[in-house]
């Protein structure tokens, strides 16, 4: 599998570290609800199909990418820098 890092170009996936579901969003710092934190940590939709996920380019620029990837075909649909994605979540 190959991922196209927006900073470094097309690279083998073993240059990256998988960091899991990008739709699992941490509750805000001032949110102290145990349920909300439990949901963030333990509940996964684990789709068979398009999955939005985080990969850290650990052997490259060491930033996270938001990758859209099909978990059935392994087709990578997009690789985007995490910044704009993460800011939109707030």
């Amino acid at each position: 599998m190959r991922l196209t890092c927006p900073y470094c170009g097309s690279r083998d996936h073993q240059e990256f570290t998988y960091r899991g579901d990008a739709t699992a969003v941490r509750p805000a710092l001032n949110n102290t609800s145990i349920d909300d934190h439990n949901a963030y940590i333990f509940d996964r939709s684990n789709p068979d199909g398009v999955h939005q996920e985080l990969w850290n380019h650990t052997s490259g620029c060491r930033t996270h990418l938001v990758v859209e990837r099909n978990t059935v075909t392994h087709e990578v649909l997009s690789c985007k820098p995490v910044g704009p994605f993460a800011r939109k979540l707030k």
């Binding site: 599998m1 083998d12 996936h13 073993q14 998988y18 579901d21 684990n46 068979d48 999955h51 996920e53 990837r69 978990t71 059935v72 075909t73 392994h74």
Partner: peptide, 13 residues
């Protein structure tokens, strides 16, 4: 293969 997958095949690493 440490990424989520429903394919019954993996990769070279």
């Amino acid at each position: 293969d440490y990424y989520n997958s429903y394919a019954q095949r993996g990769n070279l690493p």
